[in-house]
Structures are given as structure tokens and as C-alpha cells.
């Protein structure tokens, strides 16, 4: 698939450049032949420039469209896989329970697996629905949320989900962090954002998971949640792109991790809705990455 799309991109670029060259050649020869007809000449030049600009724009849009289609395909594939895997697993365990007379311990284990799979399915559905919401949509439920409490909760959920203990996924609080860490917002959305960041940190850590989640008060009335991992890291050109919808870093390292390309897009949409922002920092591949979610603190009563 990547080869054919690369060919398509190459073909449209070649076509575009051929058309531009042809137009320029036509223009120049026309000028050489008809240089006396002044006014008409100027008019003609402008006309040709417009055509050339049109061709160039067309090529750019075409290339973008091909890229977008490609990302769409990867997304559909990823979602298909992410949907069907837990469904297949639940079905397999149900049929196993039907087929065999199992002792109570085994049965309990199988029930636990099925619950985990249905949780996974629910998370995926929520993620897709969240991504479908417009980033410009206004927040409906804006309530005071204690960020410290929310982050602690998220850490508990993540530890349970990924079977990690507190040594490898820990919460750090800056010494100057005020007692009041309230922000105004939708608690579900904020939880989704923080969980997505922690999830990513775990997924891209490989076998050596060591993640610090830090709460920091910034001077200008904002508060930040920083998620730092020591995983595969991000190269400088990708630091901004990773927040685009469906975007996944191309290349072998990132492809080893399954994902839909929605997580960070959702985080950045949620951050913007709350008047905050999110950004990534990394010292390059292999040096881990840090994601910072900044949110405005609630005006103190």
C-alpha cells in the first residue's frame, strides 16, 4: 500500500511539474513572438500566471488528499483490528465456557478476561466517539475539578489496566504546588486526556516502563500535568505532527505499537476546549519523551 501511494504522489507531482513547464514554455514563446502587442501581452502574462498557480495548488491538494486517504486506510485497519480482537476474545472465552466443564477458579479467570476485553471495547468506542466531536464544540459541563485528585485516580486506573506498580508509574508533586489545584472543566474529558497521555507513555516505553507524572504550578495562573517516559522518544520533526488526527509516526519502531492515531488528537482537542494546550518534548529517538498538558486554574473563590 505505501508503495502504490508513493507512486501516486510521484505521478501527480510529475504531472503537475510537466504542466507548469509546458505553461511556462508556451508563455515565453508567446512573448517572444508577440512582444509588440503590449497591453495584450501583460494581460496574457497575468492569465498564464494564474493558470500556473492553479496547477501548482491543484498538485499540492492532490498530494494532500492521497496522504489523507492513506491515513484513513491505516485508521480503518487499526480500528478494525482493535474492535475485532476483543470481540473475538470474548467469543472465544464464552465458547470455551460452553464447551468445557471448568473448575470455579478457571471459570473466574475467564470471566475476568472477558470483563477486561469488554472494558477495552468500551474504551475504544468512547475514544472514537470523542474524536468525532468537533474540537470547536463548547463544553457543556464546566464544574470545578481537583486536578490532583483526578490525576491520582487516572494513575490508579492505568496501574490496574497495565498491571503496573507504583514504582514504575509514579506521581511527583512539585514542592511549590499549592493546596488548591482546582480547574474548571468536564471531569470525564480531563480524565480521558490524562489517561491517554499515560497510556501512550506505557505503550511507547517498550519493556522498560518508568513513568513520572508530575503536577506543576506555573506562574501565570496555570497548572500543568507532565507525563515523562523513558521510552522510544520522538524525533524533532514529528513533535507537532503527532497531534494531528489519524497521524501515526511512520517507520518500524512506532509501527510495533498498535494504535488508532486518535489519542493525542483527542488530548489536544480537550486541552483547547478548556483554554489550555498540550505539547511534546523529546531529546530525540531513544531518549524518552515528555508531554505537558497545561490548564488554567479556576479563579479562587
Amino acid at each position: 500500500m505505501p508503495v502504490s501511494s508513493r507512486q501516486r504522489i510521484a505521478a501527480s507531482i510529475v504531472l503537475g511539474s510537466c504542466l507548469v513547464t509546458a505553461a511556462v514554455a508556451l508563455n515565453v514563446s508567446w512573448i517572444l513572438l508577440n512582444w509588440r502587442e503590449g497591453l495584450l501581452l501583460i494581460f496574457g502574462v497575468i492569465f498564464f500566471l494564474v493558470i500556473i498557480a492553479g496547477v501548482v495548488l491543484n498538485t499540492i491538494f492532490l498530494v494532500r488528499e492521497v496522504r489523507r486517504n492513506e491515513q484513513h486506510d491505516t485508521f480503518i485497519n487499526a480500528v478494525t483490528h482493535e474492535l475485532k480482537t476483543p470481540i473475538a476474545s470474548i467469543r472465544l472465552y464464552l465458547e470455551t465456557l460452553q464447551r468445557h466443564d471448568l473448575d470455579p477458579d478457571k471459570r473466574r479467570e475467564f470471566y475476568r478476561v472477558m470483563v477486561e476485553d469488554s472494558d477495552r471495547l468500551t474504551r475504544l468506542v468512547e475514544q472514537v466517539l470523542r474524536a468525532a466531536r468537533s474540537p470547536r464544540q463548547r463544553l457543556l459541563h464546566r464544574t470545578p475539578v481537583d486536578l490532583r485528585l483526578l490525576v491520582t485516580e487516572c494513575l490508579d486506573v492505568a496501574r490496574q489496566q497495565h498491571h503496573l506498580n507504583a514504582d514504575v508509574l509514579k506521581l511527583l508533586e512539585a514542592p511549590d504546588l499549592p493546596a488548591d489545584t482546582t480547574v474548571l472543566g468536564d471531569p470525564d474529558e480531563l480524565k480521558a486526556a490524562v489517561l491517554n497521555l499515560i497510556d501512550n507513555a506505557v505503550k511507547y516505553s517498550g519493556s522498560h516502563v518508568a513513568i513520572e507524572v508530575e503536577l506543576v504550578a506555573l506562574g501565570d495562573g496555570r497548572i500543568a500535568v507532565r507525563v515523562r517516559d523513558h521510552g522510544i522518544g520522538i524525533s524533532a520533526p514529528e513533535l507537532k505532527r503527532i497531534f494531528r488526527r489519524f497521524y501515526r509516526i511512520p517507520g518500524a519502531v512506532a509501527l510495533r505499537v498498535k494504535g488508532t492515531g486518535l489519542g493525542l488528537f483527542i488530548v489536544s482537542a480537550i486541552a483547547r476546549k478548556h483554554g489550555g494546550r498540550v505539547f511534546a518534548e523529546s531529546e530525540g529517538l531513544g531518549h524518552g519523551s515528555t508531554f505537558t498538558l497545561q490548564l488554567p486554574r479556576a479563579p479562587s473563590a
Binding site: K84, T85, A88, R91, L92, E95, R99
Partner: peptide
């Protein structure tokens, strides 16, 4: 065999 499949 496409997933999800029947165990039998």
C-alpha cells in the same frame, strides 16, 4: 480464518 471465529 477471519476473527471473530467459531471455536468449533
Amino acid at each position: 480464518l477471519p476473527k471473530p471465529f467459531e471455536l468449533s
